[in-house]
Simulated scan of single mutants.
Amino acid sequence: MEEKFILNQKDVNLLNTYKGLKAILCKEPYNLEKAIRFVDYEKKLKKLQVELIRLQSWAIDEGERIIVIFEGRDAAGKGGAIRRITERMNPRHLRIVALPKPSEDEKTQWYFQRYVIQFPKAGEIVFFDRSWYNRAVVEPVNGFCTPAQYEIFMDQVNDFERMIAASGIRLVKIYMSISKKEQAKRFEDIKDNPLKQWKMTDVDGKAQELWDIYTAYKSKMFENTKQGGMPWRIIRANKKTYARVAAIKHILKSIPYDRKKEI
């Protein structure tokens, strides 16, 4: 027998607000439990965004350089998380980098070169929506690099990141992890939404078929990091709201700014 959801006075007060009513009415069929969770998420998000502004102000005042990279399977929610992180911050002191496939000239350069030119100046935070770790997973899975190029990358990446840290740049690495079933559901949502269809690429179209191969390369990437690389924070991302909050909390805890509240 399905358990009934019972509202308490706190829930009623929460729903009896503009955001609460909007959360109830924006989707059919109406679901009070989901509406309460969404309003609660919005309140948490606002508080965390205030802390992100404090972090950014500290970085500007101290001349700090910060890189945050987001990795994960296609449709894992990397872009959505970055949007929630940056939407209240000062856009003059941050950049979001989502590089296209390399040009013919870039293919002749040192692999890391096109990423290095995107690195932050003093007082700036750079968010990478996919990073140099394309070569650890996406490229070998889809045949976009040779086995030799892959091995060279895996041999160099930990030293590369140690050089980043030694130069004074703060590096935060986040991996958004979703299930095969959730990825398939999100792909269907994208295909059915004319405002999102541009997100679907040929690589995305093969992601479900190549799921196990992606998993094998992802595991190799994590194992390689244990050989002296900068640590990953793996976030379960089947629930987008949970993942966004977790990502923000990890960034705030990773940077030693003048925190005002417990997060």
Rank of each mutant, 00 (worst) to 15 (best):
E3H: 09
I36S: 09
R233A: 04
S167A: 15
E87H: 09
I164E: 05
S177D: 14
A76C: 10
Q9F: 05
L210S: 02
T241E: 15
R130S: 02
R186C: 09
T225H: 02
F112A: 13
F5Q: 11
A75Y: 07
L195S: 12
L21N: 15
E28Y: 11
K260W: 06
S177C: 03
R114F: 02
M154A: 04
A35T: 13
R170I: 14
I263Q: 09
S167H: 08
V97E: 01
F153M: 09
W232L: 05
V97Y: 00
D105M: 11
A75R: 08
Q149T: 07
L45W: 04
N158A: 09
K185H: 01
K44W: 01
R88L: 12
I53H: 05
I36F: 07
N224D: 08
V97G: 00
Y150A: 04
I248P: 02
R233I: 02
F127L: 03
R114M: 04
A76P: 04
K261S: 12
M200W: 15
I82C: 00
A243G: 05
L252A: 13
G123I: 03
K22L: 12
P100S: 13
A165W: 00
V39I: 13
Q227V: 01
H250N: 10
D74Q: 02
L14C: 10
W198V: 06
